[in-house]
Simulated assay, not measured.
Amino acid sequence: MGKRSLEQRLNEGTVVAAEGYLFEMERRGYLQAGSFVPEVALEHPEVLKQVYRDYMNAGSDVVLAFTYNAHREKMRIIGKEHLHEPLNRNAIRLAKEVAKEHPVEEALVAGNISNTNIFDPEDADSAEEVRSIFAEMAAWCKEEGVDFINGETFYYHEEAVIALEEIQKQGLPAVVTLGLMGENIMRDGYTVEQSCNILSEKGALVVGMNCFRGPDTMQPYLKGIRNEVEGHVGGLPIPYRTTEEHPTFFNLPDGGCSCSLPTETTFPTSLDPLYHNRYELAEWAKEAKDIGIHYIGLCCGASPAMIRAIAEAIGYETINSKYSPDMEKHFLFGKDETLKDHNLNYSKKA
């Protein structure tokens, strides 16, 4: 099969887009929580390729180059600004290598630009600095031959607009998703519905939301965006149980924790007990598809098993679906007639 574009795939059905590399790399021991800079693209390229592969085999149609936080400002903070360009280029090249491994249809490769944490709507100089950051990263994406660029986790509408403009200057399709913090409004005063509508009208192929919020506190806004926007809408929540009282993962409490934490909140390294299970995430994915969200994925905290669950929930058979749970032959809970009765009987007491 020839490689279809993102737009073709969206027009024909639902696209699964796995994010979440940041937390997955930290969990595997190859990224420092706090600075959260993806040095792994240079220091351990074989590890990054395997993570790309794991998410693609779990059902992601997109191999997203791991350049989240790989912008000039973050590299300056860790004292490695001189590695800025090689890190970005290598992350994309590794993604392209893995995308070609897909046995059915070559996966899409997305470049990645993200919130800079320096944008200030009251400071025109900050806007120009952000534009410069996005311009160089988007240019590298173009030169390295990505299929589209994913601009993500913007909590300022105007920063998202700058990202879109710089992507469009490179002649590439744009996916632009917003991170909504606890005020339930963009930090420069736009609602997410207003912001997404503007971004879509300006030419973004996909608009929507990612990160910060779990399915329960993102879904109402996705419905609002879907009602306001004519184009394609994306939703990529975190897999944590956020609530109306605590709508983001930044301040999620863990009432069962028996020790003092090194951080003031469970974010970012003590969120483990607060996960949704894969079946809850699968139910969310089905609901999202039913309301017209056709660019579906998960963000920080996602595992390949979770990605596989949402892909299968919307009707996909993934490369690794052969490893999906099947309890038929489990020694305690199986139904296979060759299993031992004394174990099956014991399962009622186990």
Rank of each mutant, 00 (worst) to 15 (best):
M1R: 13
G2E: 14
E7C: 11
E12V: 14
G13M: 14
T14S: 12
A17I: 10
A18I: 08
E19F: 15
F23I: 08
E24N: 15
E26N: 13
G29E: 10
Y30C: 14
V37F: 00
H44Y: 14
V47I: 15
L48F: 04
Y52C: 10
N57G: 04
N57M: 09
V63T: 02
L64G: 06
A65E: 02
A91T: 06
A91P: 04
I92S: 01
R93C: 10
L94S: 08
L94R: 06
K96V: 07
E97Q: 13
K100H: 15
E101H: 10
P103F: 15
E105N: 13
E105K: 12
V109C: 03
V109D: 01
P121N: 03
S126G: 09
R131L: 06
W140L: 01
V146A: 03
A160M: 05
A160T: 02
Q170C: 00
V175D: 00
T177E: 07
G179K: 04
L180T: 01
R187W: 12
D188T: 00
Y190W: 08
T191D: 02
G203K: 06
V206W: 02
P215A: 14
D216N: 07
D216H: 04
Q219N: 07
K223F: 10
G224K: 12
N227P: 08
H232Q: 07
V233N: 03
G235Q: 08
T243D: 05
T248G: 13
T248S: 13
F250N: 09
N251D: 15
L252R: 09
L271R: 12
N277V: 07
R278K: 08
R278Y: 03
Y279N: 11
Y279H: 12
A288F: 09
D290Q: 11
I291W: 12
I293V: 15
I296F: 07
G297I: 08
A302H: 07
P304V: 03
A305P: 05
I307T: 03
I307Q: 07
I307V: 11
I310R: 03
G315P: 04
Y316P: 06
N320R: 07
F331D: 09
G334C: 02
K335I: 14
S347D: 01
K349C: 09
K349Q: 14
